[in-house]
Design a protein around this nucleic acid. Sequence first.
DNA 1: CTGAAAGCGCTAACAG
DNA 2: CTGTTAGCGCTTTCAG
Lengths: 333, 333
Amino acid sequence: MEKQTVTIYDVAREAHVSMATVSRVVNGNSNVRQNTRNKVLRVIKDLNYHPNAVARGLASKKTTTVGVIIPDVTNIYFSELARGINDIAEMYKYNIILASSDGNTEKECRVFNSLLAKQVDGIVFMGRDVTTNLRKAFNDAKVPVVLAGTTSKDPVEPSVNIDYRAATDEAVSQLLNNGCQKVGLVCGALKYSINREYRLAGYRDALLKKQVEFDEHLLFETSESYQDGYDLAPRLIQNGIQGAFVSDDELAAGILNGLTDASVNVPTAFQLITGNNTKFTRVVRPELSSIDQPLYDIGAVAMRLLTKLMDHDVVANKNVVLAHQIINRNSTN
Amino acid sequence: MEKQTVTIYDVAREAHVSMATVSRVVNGNSNVRQNTRNKVLRVIKDLNYHPNAVARGLASKKTTTVGVIIPDVTNIYFSELARGINDIAEMYKYNIILASSDGNTEKECRVFNSLLAKQVDGIVFMGRDVTTNLRKAFNDAKVPVVLAGTTSKDPVEPSVNIDYRAATDEAVSQLLNNGCQKVGLVCGALKYSINREYRLAGYRDALLKKQVEFDEHLLFETSESYQDGYDLAPRLIQNGIQGAFVSDDELAAGILNGLTDASVNVPTAFQLITGNNTKFTRVVRPELSSIDQPLYDIGAVAMRLLTKLMDHDVVANKNVVLAHQIINRNSTN
DNA sequence: CTGAAAGCGCTAACAG
DNA sequence: CTGTTAGCGCTTTCAG
């Protein structure tokens, strides 16, 4: 006893009008007499008609669906971005096809193409970099792509970020000013432009201003997990560092706890500033000072930018830079 | 200079075969001579043909897309489930349309219907309960729905969970056995069946076994946020409790820190067991003892179950209950 | 303001 | 093994 799907044709027949008219009222086209509209609306309700978005997509060549590529949903940095993206997408009546990339560059390309196959109207990309292959795919696509919280070597694609370089500079400068003789930079793989072109550069900027020479032993490249941070703590101490800027909050939490467990007091003996100001900064003790990135807003603005691009609106600035600040809690003096 | 989309028809023409044949090779149908197949494959590559999933969806009435309803992506409990769902969906070549509900019952219904409009082949629902309206919508839908990490009053829809009642019972029993005279239950709104029908029932089970009388002053209904937990800590102390089972990890983290800041030592003066064993349990100090829910697996199994349902496979048990355990860390003796 | 008709790009019998 | 032929359910000119 399969319930027969009721189509626009059924409605048209029952309402004694044409499919075109039904289509018009469904789509809110004003060119329909009020009387006719009401009649159709009634039949729609009676028949419990629901437009088929797939058919609509095929006919109109617009799916009102956007693709969102995310490295890992369980990473709070990305999920905060995703929430901003989601809320604005919803506001503009777009659905989201979420695709995980695992931060795997090959998979990024694969899911990107699968998103295109689904005829999404646009794509928001989150990742740690944009590889040459991926950039090529972006260019070949006939739908707009915007990067959210994601940098690349050159800012050729539309994007929304904070100024990571300046932010890192500020954080490191503060540490230096706070009396740390040696300040470390702990961050993810330098093969990623976010770390190499922005954070490392900002770190060097700060050093330069203080006329402190760059020492590669104070640069710690690691994966950004709690455990990695915890394990790294002893090495930090051995290197005679009194402070560090850490790219990721979970990583920083690990370092903090590792330090504490090694009886190194934070912030007395070691100061820490982390990079994302996620929930983790407030859960640990002492609470972590952090660069405050407006993650939700970055996602939201990125999605808003995408809607403009999809509507072929003119956008003055395709590379939005949102404001950041440093929030001092108890891991700094 | 819009690039013209190349269709199956273009491929057919260039390869001197029919659309049907092209369709066959694209879909891996074996009924094609190797020679023909190669010829078509070459043309596909030459023309850079990519099948249009929307057209395919309309023609075949299957979109290879599933809907996933989630209260909040930034909630680690749900995002861990989502990861399991995602990975298995990927394995079975399904895309995911992610829809946020904000835990809002009315919105749950709305997004459910919008998912159906998109012609998803099935839906995984995450939430804190299944309202009557929603259940009605589930029943009226002609695609399968499975609940992941989500309970309801009666287990009528397919679902994957742990035995929350037994788990709560165990946790509370342990607290009682550990010498806590008064054990509190701190959980989210009792209007949700997960709290009322399962956690509270489990709490009572434990009490009964120890012949401890139920005291409603030891039951704390609250929203599940870090701050709420922090603010709740003083009240817990005032009520003369020496231990509590807490439904949510962020909530528990707040309580823990609130207790610590009020100079109440955990676990000496107060023991805590939390419910989800997420990252938060290991980031705080002392580390939190917890019920260990296999969140990833719950999501994964739910998605696997959905694939079976979508394929109309026979499934023996539509209400899967996965094993849990209690992990003792440093918030219990 | 309304209707007729031609697709959108693909799958799925059915024939051969 | 391959081709023909209908649609899938809807939008969209184009007439009127």
